[in-house]
Structure formats: structure tokens, C-alpha cells
Amino acid sequence: MNAPDRNLHVKAPGVSELARIVRVNEEIKAIVSTAFRINLMALNAIFLAKRAGNAALGFGVLSNELRRFAQELTRHMATLRDMTSGSVGSVTGVVQQQRTSAILAEAIRLSGDGVPGVREARRRGATRLAEQQACLRSLDLRLRSAVEETQQLVELGGVLARSAKIEAAYGGTFSPALMQVSTDFAEVIAQIKRSLEVLGKERLVKD
């Protein structure tokens, strides 16, 4: 067997799992940063509504709600981040075990199945890999469920942004400024929705 052939035989699958975790982490970071922006935007909107006085009472209430939404979103994202950072360890374990099993399989292929101890070694490796993959699948399910909960929260944020737009129309002389703020809200929430959609499609393990 020539050298490149031998190398191909011991290449283990599964390195893309780590790349997936990186992508999930990057999406979460993007949403966290956007949630922080919404928080600041909501604070500004509260001040603007106060300056507008009675004409923007409704807008003021919605701004407070949007601020609470941003804080809740930040908490959700912190949970998601904790889950993904924990999953790096699980994914690494799976990748290592896959590589180890692939090299051991190559050793068994060269030595023959009759060598004492190899069947037990293969079974031990397969059991460990199955346990690690089950752990990763469970983590994946929890992550997907957490993403779905966050998507519902963001739907509520979208409703708040649309209502803010309607309230902005009654803002009298402040109406253009309030309209601009509520449009910014809607855009930022749409951006978060897109990120969550991407996040919802990512899987820590292949189906």
C-alpha cells in the first residue's frame, strides 16, 4: 500500500461537527450583539416618548415592553451560549472517538479479525461512540427546543415593533422621529428572526 492510500484509510469522519458548533456560536454572538442594540434603542425610545408627552403615551408603554423583550432575549441567548459551549466538549469527544475507532479499524484490517482482543476493543469503542453521540443528540434536541422558545419570544417582539409603528402615527410633531425609531426596531427584529432561522437549521449531529 502506498503512503497516501494508507493515510486515506485512517482519516476519520466527523470533523465538520466542530465547524457546525463554530457556526452556531457565531449566530448566537450576532443575536446577542443585536439584542444589546435593541436594549439601547428601547431606552432612547423611552426618553423620546417622555419628551413627546401625552401624544406618545402608547408609544412609551410599547418602548418599555420592547426593553423588557430585549432583556429577556439576552437571557435566552445566554442560555443558548452555555449550551453550545458545553457541546464543544461533547463534539470533541465524538470526533476523537471517531478518529480513534477509524485508526483501530485500520489496525484490525491489517492484522485480521482473528487477533485476540480486537473484537472486544471494537465493541468498547462502538459503545463509547454511541454513548457520546446519544449525549450530543440530547444536547441538540435541547438546543433546538431553546431556539424554538426564542423564536416565539421574537415573534412577540415583532408584534411589539408593529404596534410601535402604529402608535408612532399618533405622535404629533414627534411622529417622524417615533416612526424612524419603530422602523429601526422592526428591522432589527427581522434581522434576529433571520439569525434564529439559520440557527434552527443547524444540527449538532447529522440526522
Binding site: I103, L110, S111
Partner: peptide, 19 residues
């Protein structure tokens, strides 16, 4: 090293019981 494990394991197994 890791890369040569299959070759070493196979050579060893040919002459003695690895267990």
C-alpha cells in the same frame, strides 16, 4: 506515533498475542 499505530499493531500481532 498515532499515524503508524496500524502498522505497529499489525506487526506486533503477527508475532505475539497483543492481549
Amino acid at each position: 506515533g498515532i499515524e503508524i499505530f496500524p502498522a505497529v499493531f499489525s506487526a506486533l500481532s503477527a508475532e505475539c498475542d497483543p492481549t
